[in-house]
């Protein structure tokens, strides 16, 4: 405990906890509609698009790479959604295609840069490494603003997101512009993905979206309860994951995901005992 108290005196540790909790919270809220809509892998696909954009930003030596990564990832989200519904190549295939293409081209482009530690940069981007513990004050504020924005949008459009998630055809029949709300979900997901790259890296982002939602679904069958439990689950896992990683010296992203997996196992077991788990 003394060690933890000592570590908490460092501003960068406090920043990591604030950003980690906020990102986990936003990811978990979005995770519920995404999992229910069978869009679990949209996070994976978009994170690879973000990786590709980050590689281009690195090669171009942009001082603020977020200016490139954010719009490219949002465009990727829109493309995945639009192309997935309007062409013969359907959602999962489009996500897989864009995902691997962005990953491959990103790494290819990265090799054209003169960065002295290419392997390190790629590793950091893919697995997060300790980038959550090296955030500047500006990064933290950006994350807080974007997270608050996502939370406000989620609360404001909670009922519409709920309608689009559960029965899109019925929602469309009642006159709701479901395309618009699907687009909104995709854009918010893109924003969260870009922010979460700092926390767990682009390969592990899907865990933040999927595990809280499916863990909550093991215990509850009510949309509101699933959403609330998912948020609490994600915040506890992210917080404890960061604490464990700084105390034990383990990689932050992997530790957070590891805690999520263990917590899911607990929820699944409780669900089995209660007879609520599928």
């Amino acid at each position: 405990m003394d060690k933890l108290a000592e570590y908490l005196q460092y501003p960068f540790v406090r920043y990591a906890l604030i950003v980690g909790v906020l990102i986990a919270l936003c990811s978990s809220l979005l995770g519920v509609p995404l999992v229910l809509k069978r869009f679990s892998f949209i996070g994976d696909g978009l994170s690879h698009v973000a990786f590709g954009a980050m590689c281009i930003a690195t090669v171009l030596k942009l001082s603020n790479n977020m200016l490139l990564i954010m719009p490219v990832t949002i465009i990727g989200a829109v493309l995945i959604l639009r192309t997935g519904t309007n062409t013969k190549i359907k959602g999962d295939a489009i996500i897989a295609m864009i995902s691997v293409a962005a990953l491959a081209f990103g790494y290819l482009i990265m090799n054209f840069s003169n960065t002295p530690n290419l392997a390190g940069d790629v590793c950091t981007t893919l697995f997060g490494s300790t980038s959550i513990l090296t955030l500047s004050r500006a990064d933290v504020w950006l994350c807080i603003i974007m997270s608050v924005l996502v939370l406000v949008i989620f609360v404001l459009f909670y009922h519409r997101i709920f309608a689009v998630t559960f029965d899109e055809n019925f929602a469309r029949a009642t006159g709701m512009d479901t395309e618009k709300y699907n687009l909104l979900i995709a854009i918010i997901t893109a924003v969260i993905i870009v922010l979460a790259m700092n926390l767990v890296g682009s390969l592990l982002i899907s865990a933040l979206i999927i595990f809280p939602a499916i863990s909550a679904m093991r215990l509850f069958h009510n949309y509101f309860k699933v959403t609330v439990f998912s948020a609490i689950f994600a915040v506890i896992c992210a917080f404890s994951g960061i604490i464990i990683s700084i105390l034990a010296g383990t990689p932050v992203g992997s530790t957070i995901v590891g805690v999520n997996v263990l917590a899911f196992a607990v929820c699944w077991s409780i669900g089995k005992l209660r007879g609520t788990a599928a």
């Binding site: 460092y10 300790t130 513990l133 990683s245 700084i246 010296g249």
Partner: peptide, 19 residues
Amino acid sequence: SSETMLYSEVIDMGTSPDN
């Protein structure tokens, strides 16, 4: 310090000289 904290603190020394 743990490895995670060691790396982060050394990075922080470069970005927060006043501390």
